[in-house]
Nucleic acid binder design. Structure first.
Length: 521
RNA sequence: GCAGCCGUAGCUCAGUUGGUUAGAGCACCAGAUUGUGGAUCUGGGGGUCCCCCGUUCGAGCCGGGGCGGCUGUACCA
């Protein structure tokens, strides 16, 4: 091939290769998550990567960019197919298709790759892995409360310490109620409501001033780019900001503890009072309880809080946070988000924002699209890929040191003795020791480098000298590397042959086992 | 999508007012050592200077357009 035809080797942007360390770390994470989900009674089920596009569906108001963000192609019968963009929509299809055969409520989990055709960024890929659990056919918020508790348990099984994560809970109904109360109800205001929800969703990233700008006329970012706002009045903005800045006490704490945790929980400002309310849900209720939809949402939140507290999760693991919005398409009630609370910096020293590493909520309309009856459902997904990069960044034990040691390498000293070397490799393998024959064509020095690069614990050497004596030489590379520091000259290094010893060939397995035991117990 | 910044070796980067055959460090390969991974020394491979068009006797450098990357923003089911 001529130089001009040479193809540039590169992965498509937003698609990542995974090295041995990534694979080992992911395996550990998946095992931990699976154990947690199964403990809660969920069972595994898997659906394919590809679905009919109309099964994945476009729902509810967010249709301003139809088909954007989804990889789609046409089958030979001209039907449109799409790569799945999450695991929830395919599950809804699966449940609807097998409805009569499944126990209800139906609890299931699945893990796999999902695809989104969007701009990638740090911790954000066009192919990434999710681990999802759903309860279908249970209308009770007990199902939602349970999923929040399971999310918390799972974070801890993944090695996150209490306080390093939080499960935030909100309810779509209360957001809808607030918007209704400030005059944003009705079909004709749907666009404005969408803009408001999107603005509120950014509270943790842009802060109060940024959200205020987005609720008002416009926001100008640091590059000078302008984002148009929702054009609300100052009064409307104040009431929204008051609402989303309410912060939960840890669910169910006593009043004295509440004072310690959050002594400045403010009452609704529109009555002009400066009174403080100790219970956030009561504060909400006092402010907007006249709206039926709001009242329903607050009651659901209260039930979740009580259930979580009864099970002992009222210590800050699960918090109500009115600024949680989540996606706009199909959530109908409680929504949850798993967030990491610690700060880390990237290689360049910049602070990294992970955003949420998991989320979910109630989607009572999704399965019903396939059937003539409504089917309630609620679920939660962990963003495995994003969480992996976060855990790698903080060098969490679950992802670091997950890599296996390399194989024992049998060197080829004499090319006409390959059969004898291969026999040694087989002997080691039959003893359950990871081993390989050097398959390249280079000399001994290069073979040593190769073994070094493979992280081999030791190499097996048999030249003509050893062969005549019926022996093999074992070189402990880990021990040898330690000895290297003390040796200055190359002559000395070679003469000393550190960490190297001879044994009869019949003792090969025993000698290698001794070396392995020395380093890996 | 929009905005700002940036594209020279696998990586990090030099490259003078436009002037021979475009450089360094690291990494890689080999030799010094007919049988030893580190260190040292010596040598080697590797470049469409992102692409195209233009200006010019002459472009890595100047101009226009495109493509790509990063950051912010939008979207995120």
């Amino acid at each position: 091939m001529s130089k001009a035809d040479k193809i540039k080797a590169r992965a498509p942007r937003g698609f990542a290769d995974r090295n041995p360390a990534d694979l080992a770390a992911t395996e550990r994470m998946l095992a931990a998550i699976r154990e947690s989900y199964e403990l809660y009674g969920f069972e595994g089920v898997e659906t394919p990567f590809v679905e009919y596009t109309d099964s994945l569906g476009k729902f509810l108001p967010d249709q301003d960019r139809p088909n954007e963000g989804v990889f789609s192609f046409q089958d030979d019968d001209e039907q449109w197919l799409s790569l799945r963009y999450d695991l929830t929509a395919p599950l809804a299809r699966y449940v609807a298709e097998n409805f009569d055969a499944l126990p209800k409520p139906y609890r299931s989990y699945r893990v796999g790759w999902v695809f989104r055709n969007e701009k990638p960024g740090p911790g954000r890929f066009r192919q990434f892995m999710q681990f999802d659990a759903d309860t279908v056919g249970a209308a009770s918020v007990a199902a939602d409360a349970e999923i929040c508790m399971m999310a918390a348990d799972t974070m801890e099984k993944l090695g996150l310490k209490r306080g390093d994560y939080v499960i935030k809970v909100n309810n779509r109904k209360v957001l809808d109620g607030v918007m209704e109360a400030i005059g944003l109800g009705g079909e004709d205001k749907a666009d404005q409501r969408l803009t408001v929800l999107r603005a509120l969703d950014k509270y943790d990233r842009l802060g109060e001033s940024g959200v205020r700008a987005l609720l008002g006329k416009e926001r100008v970012d640091e590059s000078g780019d302008i984002t148009p706002g929702a054009n609300l009045t100052a009064g409307q903005i104040n009431r929204l900001i008051w609402f989303v800045t309410l912060r939960s006490k840890p669910i169910g704490l006593s009043e004295s503890s509440i004072n310690r945790v959050n002594p400045t929980l403010r009452l609704a400002p529109d009555d002009g009072s400066e009174a403080y309310e100790l219970d956030m849900l009561s504060a909400m209720d006092n402010a907007y309880g006249s709206s039926p939809i709001f009242k329903e949402g607050v009651n659901e939140l209260r039930q979740i809080a009580e259930l979580a507290a009864a099970a002992g999760y009222d210590d800050g693991r699960i918090l109500i946070d009115p600024s949680v919005v989540r996606g706009l398409e199909y959530y109908t009630g409680p929504v949850y988000e798993a967030e990491l609370t610690f700060q880390v910096q990237d290689e360049d020293g910049r602070p990294v924002r992970f955003g949420s590493v998991g989320g979910g909520g109630r989607y009572d309309g999704l399965v019903g699209r396939f059937r003539s009856e409504p089917v309630p459902a609620t679920g939660f997904s962990i963003g495995v890929s994003r969480l992996l990069s976060a855990l790698q960044m903080i060098k969490s034990p679950i992802v670091s040191g997950a890599e296996k040691p390399g194989p024992v390498v049998v060197l080829v000293m004499d090319k006409d003795q390959v059969a004898a070397y291969q026999r040694m490799v087989s002997t080691l393998r039959q003893a359950g020791i990871r081993a390989e024959l050097y398959l390249g064509s280079s000399g001994m020095k290069a073979q040593m480098k190769y073994a070094d690069r493979r992280q081999s614990p030791c190499v097996v050497i048999q030249g003509s000298n050893e062969r005549e004596r019926g022996e093999v030489e074992i070189k402990d590379l880990i021990e040898g590397a330690k000895a290297a520091g003390a040796i200055a000259s190359n002559e000395e290094w070679k003469a000393a042959r550190p960490a190297q010893f001879s044994v009869p060939e019949t003792d090969l397995v025993k000698a290698v086992r001794d070396v392995l035991a020395r380093h890996f117990g």
